[in-house]
């Protein structure tokens, strides 16, 4: 597809989402909110994982801090929710700067494991903080209807995607891509690699924290286990990789597709749903390892041979 066509298509999808509350059931609206939040998370992960090439398992920390920002502001200080969202973003960005500095010196598996450790550490810390309700968690005041949350999460996904679109054609984004492709060469060519990696980490902290804040406000409940959930981080990665990491629309597309598949499976064949979900992912990774975005771009050119070529190119 031509870029302009893609944006028109994206605008139609956004318009479609916005009308759901006027005709869809409550369940559909709730599914929509969840899918939009997951898409935002996959899209934020795309910045550090897809564009910069650093497979972060620490994004659920940003998400959790965003949630706690809202929860603490509302419950402990009776502040407006907007202040809580800002508090969550500030916490997450601080965290990205403080821990990004040591952790972003590591590469590949080491980086993944170190960020995984961050999630565990955060769970332990927050479980012992009175202000965060320790391991019991916090119950937030009930908020207005689902329509508001659908609009909020839709707006957030649009902003996040616009940020990614800007990254993909800016000097900053080219610096990130150069880091992903070869970090030593990037530095020699004049990319301030340390700064760029931290900025990318902080940028994904902003969007993940906003997603976490909106979600906590919507669900009206938060505890350390659900706030800093590693399996949520795994889902972000699967969705982004399924859709096409390092592309503008892939991660959001991947999130919608996988959210829909798992929703359908869960309603039809409850107990086997997670197994089927796993099978879908394995099959996708084998036949289209570069994601849905790449499939959409190349399937017309190669036809069914596209799958054959992928299997050939990626087997050991």
């Amino acid at each position: 597809m031509k870029p302009a066509l893609k944006f028109i298509f994206a605008a139609l999808v956004v318009g479609g989402f916005a009308t759901v509350p006027s005709w869809g059931s409550a369940v559909l609206v709730q599914f929509g909110i969840n899918a939009l939040i997951l898409a935002t998370l996959a899209q934020s992960w795309n910045i550090i994982g897809g564009y910069t090439g650093y497979p972060s398992f620490g994004n659920s920390v940003f998400y959790g801090l965003g949630g706690y920002g809202v929860a603490i502001a509302l419950v402990q200080y009776q502040l407006p929710s907007a202040v809580g969202l800002i508090l969550g973003v500030v916490l997450a960005v601080l965290f990205a700067f403080l821990l990004g500095l040591p952790v972003l010196r590591l590469r590949g598996h080491y980086f993944a494991i170190a960020t995984l450790g961050l999630t565990e550490v955060m769970t332990a810390i927050v479980s012992n903080l009175d202000i965060a309700g320790r391991n019991v968690g916090l119950i937030l005041p009930l908020a207005k209807g689902d329509t508001l949350f659908l609009e909020l999460s839709l707006a957030l996904l649009v902003v996040t995607t616009l940020a990614v679109a800007w990254i993909s054609r800016s000097r900053f984004g080219f610096g990130l891509i150069a880091i992903r492709e070869n970090e030593v060469a990037a530095a020699v060519m004049g990319v301030n690699t340390t700064l760029y990696k931290i900025l990318a980490f902080a940028l994904c902290a902003v969007f993940s924290a906003l997603a976490g804040g909106i979600h906590a406000y919507w669900i009206t409940y938060l505890d350390p286990g659900s706030a800093f959930d590693v399996s949520l981080n795994v889902r972000m990665i699967i969705m982004a990789v399924f859709g096409g990491p390092g592309t503008i629309f892939g991660p959001a597309l991947g999130a919608f597709a996988l959210a829909a598949i798992s929703e359908i499976l869960a309603s039809k064949i409850t107990s086997l749903a997670s197994i089927f979900f796993g099978v879908v992912i394995v099959v996708a990774i084998i036949f289209m390892p570069r994601g849905v975005a790449d499939l959409a771009q190349n399937f017309r050119r190669f036809g069914w041979r596209y799958f054959q070529e992928n299997i050939k190119a990626h087997r050991v």
Partner: peptide
């Protein structure tokens, strides 16, 4: 784009 990185950054 490999070369464009050099033009975007560099001296």
């Amino acid at each position: 784009d490999n070369v464009a990185v050099g033009a975007l950054f560099g001296a």
